[in-house]
Simulated scan of single mutants.
Amino acid sequence: MTILETILQEKRLEVKRMLLDEPKACEQNRPARPSLFQTLKNADDLQVIAEIKRASPSKGLIAEGANPVLQAQQYEQAGAACISVLTDGPFFKGSFDDLSDVANHVEIPILCKDFMIHEVQIDRSKQAGASVILLIVAALDDMTLKRLYDYATELGLEVLVEVHDPSELQRALSIDAKLIGVNNRDLRTFHVDLEKTEEVAAHFPFDENRVLISESGIAGEEDAIRVANVGASAVLVGETLMRSSSVQDSVRSLRVKKAGTPL
């Protein structure tokens, strides 16, 4: 099995456990968060979606003992546009408790980063305080992708739809996704290649009301400039920031000028 298939097999078991659990209490009354889409659309410089990431299948432990609240507060103070919280336990050492703790301490948009395959995961995300969820095109068939997208938007959540190549971009566009991320990491092999952002950008409808986000493999200013030059409005960065000795400096270095809209 590929790494993605292994993760999805575990997710199916996780969803079964969630459905057997007692219903969770309704989400707390938190202040409304700014729209991630509008933040990215209106900014003149490349925005940073800063990720709380303790581990990954490819890198192993990255920052096992990291305090998600302290990390999130550093991200917010450094000027991040959004905080991504990995809630997967078996492969990324995250949890919905991490998400809830972060949501109680920051005011910017919060992305629940997980492998969503069922509505119950979206419910948990919202209950824990997420304002944005991730849907991965490679993990879902067309019918499920649309169903979950519609379900999340009806709950008032924004949806980041993740693609890896131009064919997956077309699937994202078919459900009218506004926030579209290019994962430079192939989830089947976990190989990373920034050319994936360039490849998808060449087919991206920049003249429509949509934004492009480059995810994974962004190590510093040079990479940020590279993806900004092809039209990215934001980068999603985890490992680089989790390992950084100065979150403030690292975030600042990524906030390069956005390029003009490509022809």
Score class of each variant (00 low, 15 high):
3 I>L: 08
5 E>V: 00
16 K>S: 12
16 K>L: 08
17 R>S: 13
19 L>W: 09
23 P>M: 06
25 A>D: 14
25 A>W: 11
26 C>Q: 13
28 Q>H: 08
32 A>R: 13
33 R>M: 05
36 L>E: 12
36 L>G: 13
37 F>W: 12
38 Q>A: 04
38 Q>L: 04
41 K>I: 00
42 N>E: 12
44 D>P: 00
45 D>A: 06
46 L>E: 02
47 Q>G: 12
47 Q>N: 07
50 A>K: 04
52 I>T: 14
56 S>C: 06
56 S>E: 06
61 L>E: 14
68 P>N: 14
69 V>I: 15
70 L>G: 02
73 Q>D: 02
76 E>S: 09
83 I>R: 00
86 L>N: 06
88 D>Y: 15
91 F>L: 04
93 K>L: 11
95 S>R: 10
95 S>K: 08
96 F>I: 09
97 D>A: 10
98 D>T: 08
100 S>M: 02
103 A>V: 03
105 H>Q: 14
106 V>W: 05
111 L>K: 05
112 C>N: 15
114 D>W: 13
116 M>R: 01
119 E>R: 13
120 V>S: 12
123 D>T: 10
124 R>W: 12
129 G>W: 05
129 G>K: 06
131 S>A: 02
135 L>V: 03
135 L>R: 01
136 I>Y: 13
137 V>C: 07
137 V>F: 12
137 V>P: 07
139 A>W: 04
140 L>S: 01
142 D>V: 00
143 M>D: 14
144 T>A: 11
146 K>F: 09
146 K>H: 15
147 R>T: 06
148 L>F: 10
152 A>R: 09
152 A>N: 11
153 T>I: 12
153 T>V: 09
156 G>F: 15
156 G>L: 12
158 E>R: 02
162 E>P: 00
166 P>M: 03
167 S>R: 15
170 Q>E: 15
173 L>V: 00
174 S>K: 10
177 A>H: 06
180 I>A: 05
181 G>A: 13
185 R>M: 02
186 D>S: 05
187 L>F: 01
189 T>N: 08
190 F>I: 07
197 T>S: 12
197 T>D: 01
198 E>C: 12
198 E>Y: 13
201 A>T: 05
201 A>P: 07
204 F>D: 05
205 P>T: 05
207 D>R: 11
208 E>D: 14
208 E>F: 00
209 N>W: 00
212 L>N: 06
218 I>W: 11
221 E>A: 04
221 E>R: 15
223 D>R: 05
226 R>M: 06
226 R>K: 15
229 N>S: 15
231 G>P: 11
232 A>L: 02
236 L>N: 07
240 T>C: 10
244 S>Y: 11
249 D>Q: 14
254 L>G: 08
254 L>R: 05
259 A>I: 00
260 G>W: 01
261 T>Q: 09
